[in-house]
Amino acid sequence: MEPKEKEGPNKPKSSLKQRISGHYYLWMIALFSLLVFGMIMISLSMGYICIPMGEISGILVNRLFGNMDMATPTAETFTAVIFDIRLPRILTCAAVGAALSISGVLFQGILLNPLADPYTLGVSAGAAFGACIAILLNLGATFVSVPAFAFAGACTTLFFVIFLSYSSSSKGSVSGLSSNNLILSGIIVAAILSAGISFLKFIANEQVSVIIFWLMGSFASKTWSNFMVIFVFLVIGFIIAIYFARDLNLISLGEKAASSLGVDIKRITLLLLVTGSMLAAVCVSVSGIIGFVGLLVPHMVRFITGPDNRKLLPLSMLVGAFLLLFADTITRAVLPHEIPIGVLTALIGGPVFCWIFKKSRLA
Rank of each mutant, 00 (worst) to 15 (best):
G122L: 10
T156D: 00
A116V: 07
V144L: 15
A134E: 05
A128D: 09
L139G: 14
A141H: 10
Y119W: 12
Y119S: 14
A128C: 12
G122E: 07
V146L: 05
A141E: 10
G126I: 03
L137G: 14
A125I: 02
G130N: 09
A125K: 01
P118S: 13
I135A: 04
C132A: 15
F143K: 10
T156H: 00
F151S: 06
C155S: 11
F149K: 04
G130M: 09
T120A: 13
A116H: 05
C155E: 13
T120M: 09
A150M: 05
G130I: 08
L121C: 11
S124W: 07
V123M: 10
A131G: 11
A150C: 11
A127F: 06
A134W: 05
T120G: 08
V123N: 03
A150D: 01
G126F: 03
L121R: 07
V123S: 05
Y119E: 09
A127S: 15
A127Y: 02
V146I: 15
V146A: 02
L137F: 15
A131V: 06
L136Q: 00
F143S: 11
I135E: 01
A116M: 10
A152N: 00
P118M: 12
V146E: 01
T156Y: 06
C132N: 13
G140A: 14
A150S: 15
T156C: 15
I133R: 04
S145I: 13
F151T: 14
A125R: 02
A134Y: 02
A150W: 01
F151K: 04
P147Q: 10
N138S: 15
I133V: 15
F143Q: 12
G153M: 06
A152T: 14
I135R: 02
N138C: 12
T142V: 14
L136K: 01
F143T: 09
A152M: 13
A134D: 08
A154R: 03
S124F: 07
L139H: 07
S124P: 08
V146W: 00
L137C: 15
N138L: 13
T142D: 13
I133F: 09
L137W: 12
L139N: 03
T156Q: 01
S145P: 00
V144N: 11
C132K: 02
Y119Q: 09
F151G: 01
A150N: 04
T156M: 14
C155G: 04
C155F: 15
A152C: 14
P147V: 06
P147M: 08
